[in-house]
């Protein structure tokens, strides 16, 4: 029966991780609603997540919009439906690709840096130093990142939506020969508020996931530089997988709600 031991060990380890993550999330959320808050740190994190992620998210969005226009034109041309390119571009970007790609890019940029920063603070006793200075590490390190992630991801995605649609517009008008006014009219006519809002809700959830994974893995890192490196990898991989999982779950919920 020895072959069952490693299976059981892995399973128990998995359950333990779920328990630790649930407790971490609960403690962190309980601190979100209780003072003191640190506005300067929240603002710094908002700038870090929102402003400094703009170039990478913007570039991702513009190229995605351009590729989407070209690919959908190729497909729709086979049954003479080229006019639907603008609709496909705007719906794909706002409902799906904007939030998911922005989430994945921010996960790589911000999730990794959070895990590395908090992990380094953990292994160099800076987290312990916070406690001895009567400062709760959750309030000082985790809560500002949560708030910044949940608020700035939707802003980033909104900007990514606009840039992505403009990428499709550039290809549609200058490469595929669409009339500029018609393209914009088609984009606007088929877009509903729900398309944009559902994307922004996804973005807020992804922002929570990215910051949760970055903080959780950083906070529990141990073993020096190697441990911090491992925490960074785990933060990015787990956030990316969870983003894709929750993307499906949220899409299914919106679908069931008639969206």
């Amino acid at each position: 029966m020895n072959f069952l031991q490693p299976i059981g060990r892995v399973f128990i380890g998995f359950l333990g991780s779920i328990g630790r993550l649930t407790m971490f999330t609960g403690i962190a959320l309980s601190h979100v609603v209780r003072p003191p808050w640190y506005p300067r740190i929240i603002l710094r994190q908002m700038i870090e997540i929102g402003y400094f992620s703009l170039p990478v998210v913007g570039l991702t969005a513009v190229f995605t919009g351009m590729v989407l226009a070209l690919q959908s034109f190729t497909g729709f041309a086979r049954f003479n439906a080229e006019g639907a390119v603008a609709n496909v571009v705007v719906l794909s970007i706002t409902r799906e690709l904007g939030p998911v790609l922005a989430g994945l890019m921010v996960s790589g940029r911000i999730g990794a840096s959070m895990a590395a920063e908090i992990g380094t603070m953990r292994v160099t006793e800076q987290v312990d130093a916070l406690t001895t200075l009567s400062t709760n590490p959750f309030k000082y390190l985790v809560v500002p990142r949560f708030i910044a992630g949940v608020t700035m991801l939707p802003v980033l995605v909104l900007i990514a939506d606009i840039i992505g649609v403009m990428g499709g517009y550039l290809i549609g008008v200058f490469e595929l020969g669409f009339n500029a006014a018609n393209y914009l009219q088609n984009t606007w006519d088929f877009l509903t508020a729900f398309d944009v809002i559902s994307g922004l809700v996804k973005a807020a959830v992804f922002g929570f996931i990215i910051t949760l994974m970055g903080c959780y893995h950083g906070y529990h890192s141990q073993g020096g530089a190697q441990g911090v490196g491992q925490a960074t990898t785990n933060a990015v991989v787990s956030a990316s997988i969870l983003i894709l999982c929750f993307d499906y779950i949220l899409t299914a919920i919106f679908f069931a709600a008639g969206g």
């Binding site: 380094t120 160099t124 130093a129 400062t135």
Partner: peptide, 25 residues
């Protein structure tokens, strides 16, 4: 007050904010 083995200064803050951390809090 606590002096850590590695000093455990906060890298993200300048020296004076490290020293005045508790006062600012």
């Amino acid at each position: 007050g606590m002096l850590f083995q590695s000093a455990a200064l906060f890298d993200s803050l300048p020296v004076w904010e490290n020293v005045a951390f508790r006062l600012l809090s």
